[in-house]
Nucleic acid binder design. Sequence first.
DNA 1: GTGAAAGCGCTAACAC
DNA 2: GTGTTAGCGCTTTCAC
Lengths: 342, 342
Amino acid sequence: MDQKKRPITIKDIARILNISVSTVSRALRDTYDVNRETKERVVALAAELNYKPNFNATGLAKGSTRNIGIIIPHITNYYFSTVITGIQEIAFSQGFKIVLFVTNDSAVREREIIESLAISSLDGLLVSISSNTDECMHFQEIMDAGLPIVFFDRVPLEIETSKVVQDDYYGAFQATVHLIDNGYTRIAHIAGPKGLSFTEKRLYGYLDALKEYNMECSEEWIVHSGFSQQDGEHDCNQLLKLKNKPNAIFAVNDRKAIGAMLALKNENIMIGKEIGVIGFTNDPISTIISPSLTTVAEPAFEIGKRSCELLIKHITKPYFEPEHVVLANRLIIRESSMGFDS
Amino acid sequence: MDQKKRPITIKDIARILNISVSTVSRALRDTYDVNRETKERVVALAAELNYKPNFNATGLAKGSTRNIGIIIPHITNYYFSTVITGIQEIAFSQGFKIVLFVTNDSAVREREIIESLAISSLDGLLVSISSNTDECMHFQEIMDAGLPIVFFDRVPLEIETSKVVQDDYYGAFQATVHLIDNGYTRIAHIAGPKGLSFTEKRLYGYLDALKEYNMECSEEWIVHSGFSQQDGEHDCNQLLKLKNKPNAIFAVNDRKAIGAMLALKNENIMIGKEIGVIGFTNDPISTIISPSLTTVAEPAFEIGKRSCELLIKHITKPYFEPEHVVLANRLIIRESSMGFDS
DNA sequence: GTGAAAGCGCTAACAC
DNA sequence: GTGTTAGCGCTTTCAC
C-alpha cells in the first residue's frame, strides 16, 4: 500500500528471456517478422507477469496516445449522455479511452478548454459546440495542428470535416405536419437560441411545413430563448399572452416542451385538446408526464457510435475524406397531440 | 490540413533563446531558482509560440499523467451525471483531465476495464462499483500497484481507502418516518439488489424507523430487484397482489418510485391518498410527474466534488490518511405522500 | 529473425 | 543560476 511496485516493462521481459527489447516490442505488437516461437514465449511471459504497456512511452515514441476527447455542453441531459454511451461503446471496443470535457454551454469555457488542451495527449476530438460559440477559429487551429475533429449535433458550418447529425429539418417538418394532420391550425414554435445550426434547421422545417400546407404563420408565434425547461415555461406563457393565441406548440426539444406543458397545466389548459404540444428528443420523461408527450425521437446512441467510428477513421487514415452523416429520426405519437375531437 | 505541423517543444524555445532546455523547463515550472529575467523571456516566448507541454513526455519523465479515471455503472442517469459534473468542476480547476469508463452495471465489463487499464496512464481512480460486483480484489490489486482509488456512492466495505457517500441510512430513516407522520401505517420498501452497501443501509434505515415507531412490518413488503423504472413497476404490481396490501411505498430510488407510481395509476389508485409513495435521489422528473414525488434529495454534485478533492489529496500526498465522508440528504416533501385526509 | 542504438519531449541529479 | 547528462519506456531505423 505504501510502496509503489515498479511496473513490469519490456526491459524486464527481455532480460528474463535473454533477448533484446526490440524483439520483445516487435513480438508484442504482432507486426514485423518475429520467430513464431520467440513470440509465443514473449506473449506468454507478458501475460504471466501481467505486463501493461506504458501509454506515455508508446505515445511519446509513436506520437499517438489512444485518447479521444469529447467536448459537450452538458452531461446531465438525456441526449448527450446517450451520445456518450454510444461513443464509449465504440471507443472501448477499439481500445480508445474517452477524455471528457464539459463546457456548461459556455463559449468562454469552451475556449479555455481548447486552449488548455495539450493536443499531444489526444488522438482526436469529438465535439458539440456550445450555443453561444460565435466563431470557430479555435477549432480550426487545432485541426490545422493535426488533430482530427468530428462534430456532432451542434456543428459549425464553416469547418470542413466530418459531421454527424440527426435530420433536424425533416424531423421538424414531420412534427409540424403531424400537428396539422391532427387538426391544429395555429402552430407556434418555441425555438432554441438563434445562430445554432440545428435550431435553425428545425425552424426551417417548421416554416416549410406551414408553407406547404398553407397554414397561418406569424412572427409572434416564433419565440427564441434557451434550451431549459424554464425557458419553455417562459416562452409558453409569452405565447398565452398573445391576442391571436396559437393552438399548438412545436418545441425545439423535450425539456422546453415539458416546460410549456407545465405552463399550460398551470393555466388549466387541456393539453392535446385545447393546445397540442410536440417535442424533440424522446427524453424518457416524455412517457412519464401526463398527458404523455408526442415527440421526434433522435438516434442519440447511434449518433455517438457513428461519430466515434468516423473519428477513428480520421485518426487511422490520414487522408480520409470528410463525411456528412444525417441520421433519420422517428416520430413518436402520444397523447399531447391527439387533436380536438379525441 | 494535410501536414501535421511539428509542435513547439522546450528545445525550440531553448534554441531560440540560446539557453539550455533545463533552464526552459525550470522557468516554465515556476520552481527552482531561475533568474527573474530569463524566466520572463521564456514565459513570454512560450506564450507567443503557443507552446503546449507534451503530457506523454512529462508523464514519462515524472511518472505522473494528469488523468483521473472515473468508473461508473451508467451515465444516462441523473445522479451519476451530476456526480461527474461535480468531479469535472474540481478536476478541471486543478488541471486534471477526466477519463471516463462506463460499466453498464456489469461486473464483467468492470473487470475488463480494470484489467485493460494501463495504470501508468492514470494518476488516480474514482469509482462507483457495479451492482453485481461480488469481490473487489481487482481494485485492491490496482491500489497495491500504487494507484489511489476513492469510492463513492456504491462503495465496497472491504477496501481500506477514502469513500464518499450520502447518508443512506438516515435518509431512509427520515423518509420512513415522514410516511409514518403522514398517517401511513403499512409501509412497504421496494429495494435495490441485495449485497450493495447503500441499498442495505437504506433497508436498515427503513426497518429501524418502523421498529422505533412500532409499526407493522412484514417480509412480503420488502421486495428486492434492479434499479430501473420497470423494476419499480414490477415490484409495485407484486405488492398490489398481496392479501395484506401496504398503503405506502418507500422506493430505493426515484426511478423505481416513478415505476411504482405508473403501476398505481394503471390500477387507478390515488397516489398519496390511497397509497403514499416516496423516492430517493431528487431526479428532476420527480417535480414533473403528477402528483409530484416526495423524495430524499442526494447531494450528488457535492459528492462528485468531495470525491475528486479527496482523490487529488491522495495523489499529491502519498501518506494521506483515508477519510470516510458522509454527506447529509434533504427530505423534499411533495404531493405523493400527502396523507389520507389531505 | 534479431540486436544495437538513437530518439520521442521532458525532468532531475550533478556539476560548475 | 545555468548547463550537461542520463534516463523515463517504448519504437524504429539500420546493421548483421
